[in-house]
């Protein structure tokens, strides 16, 4: 099955037509760059006199029971729930069925705006947005953490010590000694905070997964790492240097200050523990380093051949330097 070819487009037209309850034609179908575990396809669906702007999210390889990622179905369910909780996420139109013969995934609303970090951080039209975004992110994160998630069965509770065990197992599976990572694991084990009552954690809330307009954050993407755990994990992850894209002196996503992030979170009714945020920044830096190595192994093992995945393996050293700066 060639994704993106005429047959693929035809099958997508049938599925979209069922959702719209009238025949639909697919236009301008193309794959967007990025996404190691999911593919994102851009298209318009023309039905009658109306054009619907849509996005197809597809699992990139067969979904296994994996503690790092939720299924595409769960991801869709979370986005649907987010929309009822005043959290900006693209509306989900429908979840693909096996009979659609397209893959595992769902079709969602296409939100206009910018998601490329370097443009958000450098283009003049986002100057005003950059001043607002840290505070906005605080508010959105607080509302995510307050979401009532009982209706979603695919979410796992990830306690901090369990996450450390899982991450260490992944590190060991690489069989590559990295002294800086050993130190980071020691520090994380010795300084692990107590687990609070588990709440919904996005776990990939960062510059690059936000759709931004001149007025600030419009929508939050990529819910595939969501789980139940410590809410401070999200705040720490957002501050990881890798997501500052060169603006190292703006700790929140390269656009803002921690004080504004925390103020936005507390104004929305949450409580911030800055020490825990720092803990999760260290954890997040290590986790990103391990993800980089893991993604390059997806290429090296032959499961997904891609120069992009191969190259990301050489970004591990970036996180090693960040960890040294954080721990010494």
């Amino acid at each position: 099955m060639g994704k993106g070819d005429k047959d693929f487009e035809q099958r997508l037209a049938v599925a979209v037509g069922r959702h719209l309850e009238q025949p639909a034609e697919i236009r301008d179908l193309h794959r967007l760059t990025g996404g190691a575990v999911a593919e994102t396809w851009w298209f318009d669906a023309v039905a009658g006199s109306e054009t619907h702007e849509m996005i197809l999210r597809l699992a990139r390889y067969e979904e296994a029971d994996n503690s790092f990622y939720v299924s595409k179905r769960t991801e869709a369910e979370i986005q649907i729930l987010a929309n009822t909780a005043n959290v900006p996420a693209p509306n989900v139109y429908f979840i693909l069925e096996a009979a659609d013969n397209i893959g595992t995934g769902y079709v969602m609303q296409r939100i206009a705006g910018e998601s490329i970090p370097r443009k958000i951080l450098r283009d003049e039209q986002y100057t005003g947005a950059r001043d607002l975004m840290a505070r906005q992110c605080g508010g959105i994160l607080c509302r995510i953490h307050a979401m009532s998630h009982d209706s979603i069965s695919g979410l796992k509770i990830l306690k901090t010590d369990q996450q450390l065990v899982d991450q260490y197992a992944m590190y060991e599976s690489f069989d590559e000694p990295r002294p800086v990572f050993e130190f980071a694991f020691n520090w994380l084990k010795a300084n692990a905070p107590e687990d609070p009552a588990p709440c919904l954690v996005h776990a990939d809330f960062r510059n690059g997964n936000l759709i931004v307009g001149p007025e600030g954050v419009r929508s939050v993407l990529d819910w595939e790492m969501a789980h139940l755990g410590d809410p401070m994990e999200d705040l720490g992850w957002l501050c990881v240097n890798s997501w500052r894209f060169g603006n190292i002196d703006k700790p929140v996503g390269g656009f803002g200050e921690r004080e504004d992030l925390f103020a936005g979170y507390e104004a929305a009714g949450g409580r911030v523990d800055p020490e825990k945020v720092q803990y999760w920044e260290v954890f997040g830096t290590l986790k990103w380093g391990l993800i980089c190595r893991f993604q390059s192994l997806m290429h090296l093992s032959g499961s997904v051949r891609s120069v992009e995945l191969a190259a990301i393996g050489r970004r591990v050293s970036e996180t090693e330097l960040d960890l040294l700066q954080l721990l010494t």
Partner: peptide, 16 residues
Amino acid sequence: TVMGRLSIDNPRYSAY
């Protein structure tokens, strides 16, 4: 060691 590695992997990295 890490600085040496970054001089190869990504000498434009902000922290480097």
